[in-house]
Design a protein around this nucleic acid. Structure first.
Length: 552
DNA sequence: TTTCGCGTTGATGGC
DNA sequence: CGCCATCAACGCGAA
């Protein structure tokens, strides 16, 4: 099995140390599983700008493979690359087999059932899924009947390639291991299944059956209130169909007494499914310009506006001066993970609530930092929180002082993630700039310029009102545009991609990023000619830039 | 016993 | 999966 590490998967700003460590651990675990079955994983690195498709095809042919197997990537950029790989492989005389397994359903199946137009609301999506019926059950785990590994293929790319195919270390990829020390989730499928079963078994399944996402706690950092399976789902380490099937079993044990979508855990998988379907079918889903789903709002752009860049930097480095916001960012930077509701606070504050930054800028920061980064979910959720799409109540603004205080009156979460503030009296923990000098001194902290923690970079009471007015204006002009007959076109399905260009990231000019969004492949291959079918549950590994293929 | 002052609670509506 | 101002209703102690 071959896994290709593209530069964007191993370097900032697209990838941070924490997620890279998780990926490398998962690759190591996959290699171990393959070796236990008499095969192995070969990791190859390619240089920036290399023609990966041609090199993969050439390497496969040179080591005697007859079939190239990989999993579909449902993102536009991924589909473009898949097409290139498929074409290059076919030209090299290889049979090509692709599978759909990253989502519960093959996207084309849902789009067909929906008449070619992806639903735009969760309610409509849920009824679509009800009509289609449950997803296929996961396939069994591969056994020990894998063919022996072929001779190692020649290295891909230039001298950067890892000749022996071993999973590289963080250090070998140019990272300081200390930067990834905050990782709290172990990589690999065995760890994923163990975490999944541990959660499913909480109070005999009662926790699953009573699960309501909005009611989970964002300040339970020692033992998160949610599953924290998203990193595994995002990387392709855990099959969504495996998770779904087990959830249904645990729900069934309650004799019909369990929560339901959208708040249940199955509902969380449907959110994921919904955003994936939209990301694969709405033009430019990952950005504002040219995205028919996204309200056009005159955000400040940090790439062209120095003041906006300063605000963005303060937000991204946990220096806004609002402890609730900064504690969330501190957790994200350290661990690569924050609770869903913490992400709400961060995203609302960065966009319509306070800083008025483009949601694309915030999404780019999350792309680097999130362990569970997924282009479809990231864009969908940033559009949601910025009230650019899906969500219209732009006046519901999270208060950076009031909101978290309701669930954590003593500020334990803040004290843990912002240790400089740990000794402040509870009265000031959410508003440290109000603490008198004597109180600050007693707490061993100095707030403000040159101190240990900054004063607020904006006055929430003032800017939130200004921003609500701006949002109201943007909503009015959006409504006017729609009345003027400028409606967004229906979202058409289609194999034919008219929207090729890198729809999942910021505009290419802003990042210089190569297209990414990769997938992996399954170990179990039929030697069939080009065809597509669903792949299954166990054992795969998928990343945005990885590609695994089986040689025989 | 009635009335007043004052603080708390909950419903409501606007942004 | 907001926040706040407003107001009515209420509880309670004091006069």
């Amino acid at each position: 099995m071959l896994y290709v590490l593209e530069p964007a998967a191993t370097t900032a700003p697209h990838t941070g140390a924490v997620r890279l460590r998780f990926l490398l651990e998962s690759l190591t675990a996959l290699d171990g599983e393959l070796r236990a079955r008499g095969s192995s994983l070969h990791v190859a690195r390619v240089a920036d700008g290399a023609d990966v498709a041609a090199e993969v095809a050439a390497a496969a042919a040179r080591c005697g493979a007859t079939t190239l197997v990989y999993e579909d990537d449902d993102s536009p950029a991924g589909r473009q690359r898949d097409a290139a790989v498929g074409a290059a492989a076919a030209a090299a005389g290889l049979a090509v087999v692709t599978r759909s397994g990253h989502t519960l359903y093959p996207p084309a199946l849902l789009l067909d059932a929906a008449g070619g137009v992806a639903p735009r609301t969760m309610a409509a999506f849920t009824s679509l899924v009800d009509r289609v019926g449950p997803p296929r059950p996961p396939l069994p785990t591969v056994g020990d009947d894998l063919p022996p590994p072929p001779p190692p293929p020649p290295p891909l790319g230039d001298g950067e390639a890892v000749a022996d195919g071993a999973v590289p270390s963080l250090g070998a990829l140019g990272w300081d291991a200390a930067a990834a020390a905050g990782l709290r989730v172990r990589g690999g499928e065995a760890a994923a299944l163990q975490r999944m079963e541990a959660f499913l078994g909480r109070r005999g399944g009662a926790v699953v059956r009573a699960f309501e996402k909005p009611k989970t706690s964002m300040v339970a950092w020692r033992t998160p209130d949610t599953t924290v399976l998203s990193p595994y789902l995002a990387a392709g380490v855990l099959s969504p169909r495996t998770f779904y099937a087990r959830l249904r079993e645990v729900e069934a044990a309650g004799n019909g007494r369990h929560t339901r979508p959208p708040v249940s855990l199955v509902g969380q998988l449907l959110w994921r499914e919904h955003f994936h379907l939209l990301a694969g079918s709405v033009p430019h889903f990952g950005r504002m310009a040219g995205n028919p789903l996204c309200r056009q709002i005159p955000w400040d752009d940090p790439s062209t506006d120095a003041a906006a860049a300063a605000r963005h930097a303060a937000w991204a480095t946990a220096r806004t001066g609002y402890p609730a916001v900064d504690a969330c960012m501190a957790q994200l930077r350290k661990e690569g993970w924050v609770h869903h509701l913490g992400r709400h606070l961060l995203a609302c504050f960065a966009t319509r609530g306070d800083l008025w930054l483009s949601w694309e800028a915030g999404a780019a920061t999350f792309e680097e930092l999130l362990l569970d980064w997924d282009p479809a979910l990231n864009a969908g959720n940033w559009m949601w929180l910025s009230a650019s799409a899906f969500f219209n109540s732009y006046f519901r603004v999270y208060g950076p002082v009031t909101w978290m205080r309701k669930v954590d009156p003593e500020g334990k979460f803040i004290r843990h993630y912002l240790p400089a503030l740990a000794r402040l009296p509870t009265a000031y923990i959410y508003e440290p700039w109000k603490a008198p000098a004597g109180v600050q001194a007693a707490a061993g902290v100095r707030i403000g310029d040159g101190g240990d923690y900054p004063a607020p970079i904006v006055d929430h009471a003032v800017v939130s009102k200004v921003n609500i007015d701006r949002m109201a204006k943007a909503f009015r002009s959006g409504a006017a545009a729609e009345k003027g007959g400028n409606k967004a076109p229906a979202v058409k399905v289609g194999g034919v991609g008219g929207w090729g260009g890198g729809a999942n990231a910021k505009p290419a000019a802003a990042t210089g990023a190569p297209s990414r969004g990769g997938r992996s492949a399954k170990a179990k291959a039929d030697a069939a000619p080009v065809k597509t079918e669903e792949s299954g549950g166990a054992g795969g590994l998928r990343t945005r830039s990885g590609r695994v293929s089986k040689k025989r």
